[in-house]
């Protein structure tokens, strides 16, 4: 093939673009109806509620609704608790992921199943379980209360505990996956250079899997931010102390639907921001 001149090159590009468009159209035409129709219904099912939220939003009174003290209180509490829960998840979740990915021990599969159970467990059940463990009369909570005077249920710390319980498995699974994909021979190379296993983890593995940890942390944070069931069960619903955004939305819906919509919009915006932050990782799959 000879090198085309500018004009013929441009023409070729146009032709090629046209071909591509035609090919795309042909591909769409080739999709069988029994697949296309349910797929479109699925799209509508997922997208229409979000559109409805935007359509019904009380745009005019929105600034007023969102600047109320209650909203700010709930939003601040949500952000603080979700961030704290993510921090807790990172501190214990990353080492846990490393253990699951790098150390061979009997019962590893069982342990992995156990720690990821909260992923599929109904959050309310998680809340009840937390009460049984960390409540005033719980098997651990009793000791915490009598020895250290620490009470977790129905406190802001309780919100963090409930959110971390639900969100940490997301982080563990994400980081473990990244660790498994990372070449363990870098750790071997570090060992031959005199690094202990911990030094190798800290100075080599951790920087290498940082993107995976970040993605896992964002995922856990988003999950913690939306946490409802475990939080309301374990920490209750006290404005300013344990009432996070999702609880506020639920409560507002019963008394002031417009406020509920406004609060929902804030959470939607946060979710979109999270997705935008992760787009490099997940939305390029196609």
């Amino acid at each position: 093939m000879t090198v085309p001149t500018d004009r013929s090159g441009a023409a070729a590009d146009t032709i090629r673009g046209g071909l591509r468009r035609r090919r795309v159209r042909a591909q769409v035409r080739g999709v069988p109806l029994p697949l296309l129709v349910p797929a479109l219904i699925g799209v509508a099912f997922l997208v229409v509620p979000l559109i409805a939220l935007l359509v019904r939003a009380p745009w005019r009174s929105l600034p007023e609704l969102l600047t109320s003290a209650e909203v700010w209180q709930a939003l601040r509490l949500s952000l603080v608790c979700a961030t704290a829960a993510t921090a807790v998840s990172l501190v214990v979740g990353v080492p846990l992921a490393w253990l699951l990915a790098r150390v061979e021990f009997p019962g590893r599969g069982l342990l992995r199943a156990l720690v990821t159970l909260p992923l599929v467990l109904p959050p309310v059940v998680g809340g009840v379980a937390l009460l049984m463990a960390l409540g005033r009369n719980g098997i651990v909570g009793k000791t915490l209360d009598s020895w250290f005077g620490v009470t977790l249920p129905f406190t802001t710390a309780g919100v963090v505990v409930a959110e971390a319980f639900v969100a940490m498995p997301f982080l563990v699974i994400s980081v473990e996956g990244t660790l498994r994909a990372a070449d363990p021979r870098y750790e071997e190379a570090a060992a031959t250079l005199g690094a202990s296993r911990f030094t190798a983890f800290r100075r080599v593995t951790l920087p290498l899997i940082a993107p995976g940890i970040a993605a896992g942390a964002v995922l856990a944070w988003a999950r913690a931010l939306g946490e409802f069931g475990a939080t309301i069960t374990f920490a209750g619903n006290f404005p300013g102390r344990t009432q996070t955004m999702p609880l506020a939305v639920y409560l507002a819906l019963q008394s002031d639907p417009e406020a509920a919509i406004a609060l929902s919009l804030v959470l939607l915006a946060v979710s979109v921001a999270v997705l935008a932050g992760l787009r490099d990782r997940w939305m390029t799959a196609g």
């Binding site: 071997e188 190379a189 060992a191 031959t192 250079l193 005199g194 690094a195 202990s196 296993r197």
Partner: peptide, 9 residues
């Protein structure tokens, strides 16, 4: 253990 051996790879 490898980290304590006077070995370079």
């Amino acid at each position: 253990p490898p980290e304590s051996r006077p070995v370079g790879v």
